[in-house]
């Protein structure tokens, strides 16, 4: 897999290159918009990291030109600007993700990984969270490689929470994911499923936390 980095700051480029080479990716680096437009046609890149502040042209212009030429390469925009309008314009013009400087290296890695997977049409087939493994294709969940006995709805709750690990998922959102419109849902049905899930996850290092008034949050206990 090949990654293209378009960044004019040499010191930052060296760091980013190091990050992704250490992961076994082939990384190419250019520092101007013109070079980027040249090289992107020549190699089948899996993803591209694009800085907006380039010396010869605006990164948004590079993005626009690539999309107009119908290249579907996943692009992550990297910028020191953080105005919300910039972000919206960037995503409108066909960027797949957006990260503002300074960023956390782990975050950049995760986003680029996700971009590459999405480009391959295979979004996160298996989720690993602590000692929990969730196979999204089959729907099976394992703790320490032991299959968990889950009902269909318990699995739906777990999966909804797991893909948003560390984030609060509102009750309304969970209800919408788990129950269909014609289901006769008792007011506390969700609480019941959460309680059952917690019992079944007792042996794992996964924790489902109630955030009062907001919803539930799944996290890996320390």
């Amino acid at each position: 897999m090949r990654l293209l980095i378009v960044e004019d700051d040499a010191a930052l480029s060296r760091a980013i290159i190091k990050v992704f080479r250490s992961q076994g990716l082939a990384v190419d680096h250019v520092s101007s918009g013109r070079d980027a437009l040249e090289i992107v046609k020549m190699e089948p890149y899996s993803a591209m990291i694009l800085d907006l502040g380039l010396p010869d042209m605006d990164g948004l212009q590079v993005l626009k030109t690539i999309r107009q030429a119908h290249f579907n390469i996943p692009i992550l925009i990297l910028t020191a600007r953080d105005a919300t309008t910039d972000r919206v314009v960037g995503l409108d013009q066909g960027a797949d993700d957006y990260l503002s400087k300074p960023f956390e290296v782990a975050e950049l890695e995760a986003r680029v990984r996700a971009l590459i997977r999405r480009g391959q049409g295979n979004p996160e087939p298996t989720l690993h969270l602590g000692n929990l493994k969730l196979d999204r294709a089959s729907g099976a969940a394992y703790v320490c490689d032991q299959l968990l006995e889950l009902t269909k709805r318990e699995r739906a709750v777990l999966e909804t929470l797991a893909v948003r690990v560390g984030n609060v998922v509102s009750k309304a959102r969970l209800n919408a994911e788990v129950f269909s419109y014609d289901d006769q849902v008792a007011p506390n049905a969700l609480e019941v499923y959460i309680a059952r899930l917690r019992r079944k996850l007792e042996k794992s290092d996964i924790e489902i936390v109630t955030v009062r008034g907001l919803g539930y949050l799944l996290r890996v206990a320390k």
């Binding site: 700051d9 930052l12 760091a15 020191a80 400087k101 300074p102 960023f103």
Partner: peptide
């Protein structure tokens, strides 16, 4: 922000 990004990374 730019130099800070370099340092942080």
């Amino acid at each position: 922000r730019a130099p800070l990004t370099v340092v942080r990374t």
